[in-house]
């Protein structure tokens, strides 16, 4: 890749002016060229393609007919779309509360101890490096309706525990979110923990002198101290919530009966199962616009001085 011709200076052969142009403009851009090339081919051009195909009846093969807003009209009348959108909203609320709460709790407790600190931190982080296919396979066994934890607890007399975690349409979404959270919250914990290390320790000493309890310390010192990190994780949580795909796909593919359907699983099925690539593009574009709106809203509110 790094051929000598592309970056060697040309000290004498070229005229001084063009040589300087090569040095100052051509050479730097040549170094960026591979990055730019692969980014345009893989990400930018197909993304622009999605914007175009969203307004067509493209099947994925052959030509696409311009159909205007037809895909979006169909989307607005599609009950599965509203189901999926609602599920993404529930997902968002779940992930804004459960993993962030667990991570804040764990990180603030961890910040106070010395012995075992590294052990706990590494253990909590470990599920994040395990492949999603392994995490889902292992939880599918634990949640198995005929041999899993529900049946085992029922055998011990806890009859209420005999739940079809991934088969009952009322709770499947929460089960999938639970499993996704198992591998995610430790990642947040490590981020919060790192942020807490940089909070001025003398603030805690002052608070203790004034008789603050642990809860007050957490609310008045820790949380404000890690606010930039916290806000950033809230933002990515919202955005990731509307893109969630992998765990849902691996565990239920949106089932049973669309009970755990997400915008992403709906788009994936449209494109690769039903060969309605134009419709899938419309869903993908809608999802991206939703993320963009939330992202912009977030940034705009912060600019206006909102304490978020």
């Amino acid at each position: 890749m790094l051929t000598s011709t592309s970056i060697r200076p040309f000290p004498t052969r070229a005229t001084p002016r063009s040589s300087r142009f090569i040095q100052r403009v051509i050479k730097p851009w040549l170094l960026l060229l591979p990055l730019l090339f692969f980014n345009v081919v893989v990400i930018l051009a197909p993304s622009l393609g999605t914007i175009y195909y969203a307004f067509t009846d493209w099947s994925g093969l052959g030509d696409a007919q311009w159909t205007g807003l037809a895909n979006f009209q169909r989307l607005l009348g599609d009950t599965i779309f509203w189901r999926a959108f609602g599920n993404n909203l529930i997902w968002c609320i779940l992930f804004l509360t459960v993993p962030i709460g667990m991570a804040l709790l764990g990180a603030s407790l961890l910040a106070n101890i010395r012995r075992g600190q590294t052990f706990f931190r590494v253990l909590y982080f470990a599920p994040y490096v395990i492949a999603s296919v392994v995490v889902t396979a292992l939880w599918r066994n634990i949640f198995n309706p005929s041999m899993g934890i529900g049946v085992q607890l029922a055998k011990l007399g806890l009859l209420w525990a005999d739940i079809k975690f991934l088969g009952d349409s009322n709770i499947v979404l929460y089960s999938v979110a639970f499993i996704d959270n198992w591998h995610w919250w430790g990642f947040l914990l490590v981020i919060y923990f790192a942020a807490m290390q940089s909070v001025d320790y003398s603030l805690y000493e002052h608070a203790r002198l004034e008789g603050a309890n642990r809860w007050q310390e957490f609310i008045h010192i820790t949380l404000p101290g890690i606010r930039p990190t916290l806000v950033f994780t809230l933002l990515i949580t919202v955005i990731f919530s509307f893109l969630a795909f992998e765990y849902v796909w691996l565990l239920t593919q949106g089932g049973p009966a669309n009970a755990s359907e997400m915008l992403s699983t709906m788009a994936y099925k449209s494109a690769f199962r039903r060969f309605e690539a134009g419709y899938a593009a419309a869903i993908g574009l809608t999802t991206s616009v939703i993320c963009l709106v939330f992202g912009t809203l977030f940034v705009a509110l912060r600019r206006r001085g909102w304490e978020i």
Binding site: V42, I43, A45, P46, S47, G49, T50, Y53, G60, I239, L243, F245, L263, S264, A267, Y268, A271, A277, A280, A281, I283, G284, L285, T287, S288, C291
Partner: peptide, 9 residues
């Protein structure tokens, strides 16, 4: 840019 936006094309 989310993967959803560029995966299909």
């Amino acid at each position: 840019l989310p993967i959803t936006l560029f995966l299909v094309p």
